[in-house]
Design a protein around this nucleic acid. Structure first.
Length: 424
DNA sequence: TCTGGGGTCCTAGGACCC
DNA sequence: TCTGGGGTCCTAGGACCC
């Protein structure tokens, strides 16, 4: 039995979540901003029509938004995460085998369902999701994940498909692949598009017809795999179990140029504390932490990039330990006179905490560390992030480098105080 | 010291994705 | 062109070992 995958994703997911709880937004252009209200990461078709590009910096489009009555929202991850979980519950009624690929995309295994009309099944799926969550979606169906992605793209861009594109039929598939630009293939970005176009590979079909060995030369094994996937041979399997994440980072612009060492300490310590929180949330620990801070490449004068790594004798996710390490890096690498504008911390060698090797003696962490961290996370979950924190991470409420969420909608589905109100 | 032919680990950088 | 803040995978090159 051959494989069949469906890729379902929500249209302008973040914007659609906002619309579900405020129908007045339905015919208005809506955008949702990235972390820190930096740039537009989700736009409804009405917003796209105004010329607002993916990733457009908010400060550049602020006036346009005001003039055109664009509804602007900060990212409300609590809401989107909950809506995502609800959607996946619905998907599981249509097949038990699903891979949650991102917050708004899931692959569904439809293998063995070929006895039915898959396009009809896809439309049923769409309708059920719409009815139960309020979210509009598109569905692409094909023998490989890469082709399912492509089918999904087609479903979005060809109006008379009614949101569902079934590409399991080879002939139908070929006709579409001959007219879709190669840049729309999953995994083909700007650089690869340029290389391929130079070789005369313009459409998806051209790429599928390319000699895999040549594909490997130009785009490494990733390119070779892509060619096989486009030909209908599965190379990328469904991954139902999310693998443990390998790295974790907290990075941010400082909000203004910083020249004093003590002033850098505060955001950097804060980043370390956030990283530790993230690790604890996922039951992960780390053997090392890397801290970096740098000037702006656009400022006059030479560019400075300072970086340092501290290794630990045992796996840890203790805020105090990580903060101390980061402060040591700043002490050692800071240069007087440089205008630093961005910094961050990261750990790239994460391990699950149960599996962690413990050192018997000379433990880095104070004996009560674990219960202290647990208590701290609990309090912060209840009273909001930053309710309880290390003194070194700053005592003022708002800083340039603290994340901005100035346009956030209520957590409609996860906080009793913020439930939507209905009048009957 | 150089010759041969492996192997591993680590880091940096490129490319892509959401 | 960069603007944000995360992630993943792949390759090349250096250090080191046998």
């Amino acid at each position: 039995m051959s494989q069949v995958f469906a890729l379902i994703d929500a249209n302008s997911f973040y914007c659609s979540c906002e619309r579900v709880f405020d129908p007045r937004l339905n015919n208005r252009p809506v955008i949702v901003l990235s972390n820190n209200d930096g740039c537009a990461v989700a736009r409804t078709p009405e917003a796209k029509a105004l010329g607002i590009d993916m990733g457009a910096p908010f400060f550049k489009i602020r006036e346009l938004c005001k003039k055109e009555n664009v509804a602007v929202f900060s990212s409300n991850y609590t809401l989107y995460g909950d809506m995502s979980a609800r959607s996946n519950q619905v998907y599981k009624m249509f097949t038990p085998d699903i891979e949650v690929y991102s917050i708004d995309e899931s692959f569904l295994d439809f293998s063995g369902f070929q006895t039915r009309d898959l396009a009809v099944y896809g439309r049923e799926l769409r309708q059920t999701v719409k009815q139960w969550t309020g979210l509009p979606t598109c569905v692409g169906i094909a023998p490989t994940k890469t082709l399912a992605k492509l089918a999904n793209w087609t479903a979005k861009h060809v109006p008379d498909m009614q949101g569902v594109c079934d590409m399991t039929d080879r002939r139908k598939r070929e006709a579409l692949m001959r007219v879709i630009p190669v840049s729309e293939v999953w995994g083909v970005g700007r650089a690869s598009t340029a290389k391929l176009n130079n070789m005369g590979v313009k459409t998806v079909w051209d790429l599928a017809e390319l000699d895999p060995a040549l594909g490997r030369q130009v785009l490494t094994v990733v390119g070779e795999r892509l060619i096989h996937e486009l030909r209908g041979t599965m190379c990328i399997a469904l991954e139902q179990e999310a693998p443990l994440r390998k790295g974790c980072a907290v990075t941010r612009m400082f909000g203004h140029r910083i020249t004093e060492r003590d002033e850098i300490m505060e955001p950097m310590s804060f980043f370390a504390a956030r990283l530790a929180e993230k690790l604890r949330k996922y039951d992960l620990g780390t053997n090392s932490i890397t801290a970096f801070f740098h000037s702006s490449p656009h400022d006059a004068g030479p560019y400075h990039y300072e970086q340092g790594t501290v290794s630990f004798p045992e796996v840890t996710n203790d805020s105090s330990v990580l903060i101390r390490a980061v402060r040591r890096v700043v002490e050692a690498k800071y240069k007087r006179g440089v205008k630093y504008f961005k910094g961050g911390v990261m750990s790239m060698d994460l391990v699950g905490v149960e599996k962690a090797q413990r050192v018997l003696f000379d433990s880095l962490e104070a004996p009560q560390s674990e219960s202290l961290m647990t208590a701290m996370d609990k309090i912060n979950r209840k009273y909001g992030r930053g309710a309880l924190k290390h003194a070194t991470t700053g005592t003022q409420v708002k800083k340039g480098w603290s994340t901005q969420f100035n346009y956030k909608s209520p957590s409609y589905t996860t906080r009793m105080e913020e439930l939507p109100k209905a009048r009957a």
